[in-house]
Design a protein around this nucleic acid. Structure first.
Length: 488
RNA sequence: CGCGGGGUGGAGCAGCCUGGUAGCUCGCGAGGCUCAUAACCUCGAGGUCCCCGGUUCAAAUCCGGGCCCCGCACCCA
């Protein structure tokens, strides 16, 4: 679920950028190497290759289903697209003197098949296997991260690299103050074989960092004959990651880029974790929520809306079926869906056309102008939940107007209804990055002339479209259909 | 003294940085409306803002101390 939230957050943001007329490249990917993959494959009686191919299938079909509008999907096991960049980067880091081979000595538990720290031991024994770990030495390549401590401190302090939310930046800075450790960059092939071989050193396999982090630039073909540097050098780079891998993205990765002579990213957006009914999701507790299940029951947009609306960027959030159903019912169904329905029904029944001269200035018109302003402001600061709230505020406002003016038997009913339709048109546009399919359905029902094309990548919400009455060739509304039906 | 997050009406949260009538969603109670997906609108009940001390004219908000919960293995993502 956390995984899904990350993709949805990124997708919402990307869609907003595209709708603003920006050129965007949206890359996602999977890290497919490592000993865990080897082990899992063994357990399931398949080769690592078969396992990762199966996993990628699962991911891509899930992303497609969720409407994640990525441009590039990078697989770290792709020898054609990913490996060349990684190998070239490794050599650059090595030639710059940042990679050194050292002997690592640690306490190895053969049960866990990994090194344990002293702190993990209970009475000198591995808590899981109740046996004493043995002291094992192995050769590792190390990345001399310590050398870049000052560079990184500056980078974060003057926000050349901005971390959102800023509290995480403090966290990373305090890590820096306490002193960095050099990072292990490889494993002997004898212990991990499923990975990218270290260039010019046959006995070693790359550890995750040089391999996986590099996906950001391997997706652009860096260090190959088909480099697309403009997407990095002249672009604003935003990484969207989980807080658990903060230090690697905020410290190790910028250092690697600097060493290779590539500019560092502008922003890192760190999201929190999702709990389930207040507890960490775990198999043993049986409270794991499968996003597919949610989508099957409520639809993609309901999930996208819930995550955007309920979980402020950067915070941890909670998923509970009860809350989900409440939000779906009340916000999407009763407030938004019902507003659409009541307005369109009145339009159709009264055989009313959209007024070519939208009355203004009115309270409604002023409200919407203000909401658009707040809306984009919140997007700029990655406050996605606040942004979506702006659209919902208009919904509430319309529902109030409808009631207080008893529009259904008001003498200026036609005018009011035109205003509501226009408001709904704006609401749909605002919701477009969040719940694209539903926003399009709304627009189609409203009869907005651009509705058909609004899911295209080059669709832009122009100034005119954002203006009150700015959609001039719009005359009729269509038939209302229930957007968010009740779900048991 | 490992690090971090948190403790606000029944539930989930915002507010804290930049002190000054405690706000939102859901639920609950009463009333209204009837165009609409029994939806919508209005009003209301309900809170020692974890505890103790300090600063201040004034503290949920700042400072000090204490208590409690949750992450930082793996699984899951």
């Amino acid at each position: 679920m956390g995984h899904v939230m990350e993709k949805i957050m990124a997708d919402v943001y990307v869609r907003w950028l595209r709708l603003g007329g920006h050129q965007v490249r949206f890359q996602v990917g999977t890290d497919e190497h490592g000993s865990k993959m080897e082990q899992t494959a063994k357990k399931e009686g398949m080769t690592p290759r078969e396992l990762v191919d199966r996993n990628v299938q699962t991911f891509t079909s899930l992303y497609d289903r969720l409407g994640i509008s990525y441009d590039v999907f990078i697989r770290t096991t792709d020898k054609k697209t990913h490996w060349p960049t990684v190998n070239a980067l490794w050599r650059k880091l090595r030639d710059a003197g940042m990679l050194q081979k050292r002997t690592y000595t640690g306490l190895y538990c053969s049960g866990c098949e990994r090194f344990l720290t002293k702190k993990e031991l209970v009475d000198g024994l591995c808590p899981d296997h109740l046996r004493a770990p043995e002291e094992v030495s192995e050769e590792n390549w190390f990345y001399a991260l310590k050398k870049d401590a000052d560079f990184l401190t500056d980078l974060l302090k003057n926000e050349t690299l901005q971390i959102i939310p800023s509290s995480r930046s403090h966290e990373v800075l305090s890590l820096l103050e306490r002193g960095l450790e050099d990072a292990s960059f490889s494993r002997p092939t004898s212990s991990v074989a499923w990975g990218i071989p270290v260039p010019d050193d046959e006995g070693q396999t790359m550890y995750v960092w040089c391999d996986a982090l590099t996906n950001y630039i391997s997706g652009l073909g860096y260090f190959t004959d088909h480099e697309q540097k403009e997407w990095w050098e002249s672009a604003t780079i935003t990484h969207v990651i989980g807080k658990d891998i903060a230090r690697f993205h905020a410290l190790l990765w910028p250092s690697m880029l600097k060493t290779a002579g590539i500019k560092t990213p502008e922003q890192i957006l760190m999201h929190g974790f999702i709990t389930s009914d207040g507890q960490k999701m775990s198999k043993s507790l049986g409270n794991v929520v499968n996003p597919v299940e949610v989508v099957e029951k409520y639809g993609v947009d309901a999930l996208r809306f819930f995550l955007s609306h309920e979980i402020p960027v950067g915070n941890d959030g909670d998923f509970s079926w009860k809350r989900f159903s409440e939000i779906y019912q009340s916000k999407l169904g009763n407030q938004l869906g019902n507003l659409m329905n009541r307005v369109l029904t009145l339009m159709i029944k009264g055989n009313i056309e959209i007024s070519p001269d939208m009355p203004h200035p009115t309270d409604m018109d002023k409200t919407i102008t203000a909401k658009w302003k707040h809306y984009s402001g919140f997007f700029d600061s990655f406050s996605l939940s606040e942004a979506v709230q702006q659209a919902m505020d208009i919904v509430t406002f319309c529902n109030q107007m409808m009631q207080t003016h008893e529009v259904w038997n008001h003498e200026r009913k036609n005018e009011f209804l035109s205003e509501f339709c226009e408001s709904l048109r704006h609401i749909a546009l605002m919701l477009l990055p969040f719940i694209p399919d539903s926003a399009q359905k709304m627009s189609k029902q409203l009869g907005a002339p651009y509705a058909e094309s609004m899911l295209n990548r080059d669709f832009v919400i122009t100034k005119e479209l954002q203006t009150w009455g700015g959609c001039t060739d719009w005359t009729h509304v269509g038939t209302p259909e229930i957007l968010f039906p009740k779900v048991d």
